[in-house]
Design a protein around this nucleic acid. Sequence first.
DNA 1: ACAAAAGTGTTGTAACTACACCCATGT
DNA 2: ACATGGGTGTAGTTACAACACTTTTGT
Lengths: 238, 238
Amino acid sequence: MKKDFVKTSRGWYSYEYPRAALTADNVIFGFDGQDLHILLVRRGVEPYKGKWALPGGFLRMNETIEECASRELKEETTLSNVYMKPVGVYSDLDRDPRGRIITSAFYALVRLTEVKGGDDADEALWVPLTQVPALAFDHDRILRDARQRLKEDIHFRPVGFQLLPEKFTMPQLQRLYEAILDVHFDRRNFMKKMLSVDILENTGEFEEVHGHRAAAYYSFNMERYRHLKSKSDFHLEF
Amino acid sequence: MKKDFVKTSRGWYSYEYPRAALTADNVIFGFDGQDLHILLVRRGVEPYKGKWALPGGFLRMNETIEECASRELKEETTLSNVYMKPVGVYSDLDRDPRGRIITSAFYALVRLTEVKGGDDADEALWVPLTQVPALAFDHDRILRDARQRLKEDIHFRPVGFQLLPEKFTMPQLQRLYEAILDVHFDRRNFMKKMLSVDILENTGEFEEVHGHRAAAYYSFNMERYRHLKSKSDFHLEF
DNA sequence: ACAAAAGTGTTGTAACTACACCCATGT
DNA sequence: ACATGGGTGTAGTTACAACACTTTTGT
């Protein structure tokens, strides 16, 4: 790659035409078995100091925007190899008071239990989607768009399984789908449909509650999913 | 907005950290009644001089990325108010030999007949999707992604009607859907399904072929589409 | 005893697929 | 006469939505 800048005497980077700065921001979804949460960070500096915001950061010159997003995600959660999908590009002229900063937003699905949940004093905090405060910058809009995107994606890809532990019960899976799609399903029909796709495996194990048998554990069988004849075989209509 | 740069003595723009340049590229789809086409431009300068590429250009500081994309689209087609949707961000380090240039890709749907079709000598040319040559930069990949996105979108939104003239025949509509989805439908079932959604209006007029009555003209009724109870009412499964 | 959560089958209805013949026009 | 393209209806199958009772456990 050609060098497309010159350095000034002060060590700054100089270009023939003005350029916007690029950031990546992540909407990190987690599920606690009951509700959908997102991971927020409290801003320690101006602008929007003290406000909650999506975790993110500036693009470096040796990484793609996806690499930037997953680097930021790793810094926040210590997780790598996380399921991420692009949400959109946000480039309103006045979206950041610091100047012309454009962000590329992603959503990520993580197992909430694998991330050390910070408390309020900490910088990062899991917040239920029903209790998200007003966010810094245009992050409210980004969050809305990410939820919408997740809602659409879940019809075509088994995204839910990225949010659940290895083994999960049918009621947990149903609560997750209900939280994402914001609807209610009949237990029997939900179970029937899920099992009809043939990507779930009954582990034979059972959830234990107070030392007694409760719901049966299932696991997601990635092999079987790969072998579906067409992607539309996993077209959950609901 | 704060000024986030300083100008050098040579009039260049200087930043504390390196920045990538941002462009917008458009995959412009058109339909000639038979096949899907895209609009390509032949590059007049290096790199990739003489190669075909997607139309696009650099972001200006007084516009959003969407405004940039539609400005470029207008320059190429003279059309405004065109249906456009984002495809993705392409930021591979070596995607442009000129330096760190990141592009935000969009697809657009236009009525091919409304755009003066340039010939080979011209700079812009309509090319059937079946005959697209190897493109400059990573535009092959962008095109693949745009086709995939269009394929997915058509299930949820009546995107096809952006590509057809005001009045169109059922066989034309079917050919369009077949071109986008790359499948074949039974004529009777296709018609039945389309009419069942209740967003088409029989104009009472007929296509004339050699002075004789041929297929009936339909038009898309935007009002009826808006009044659908839910978006999933236009969920064409196929 | 009462409430809460998990498991299990059937039936009516709606939607989809597959399929054949007629008519008009152009060669 | 033959081929092409447009118009129309039905029957079999599949997928979906709606629905109730039993068991276990905790209070």
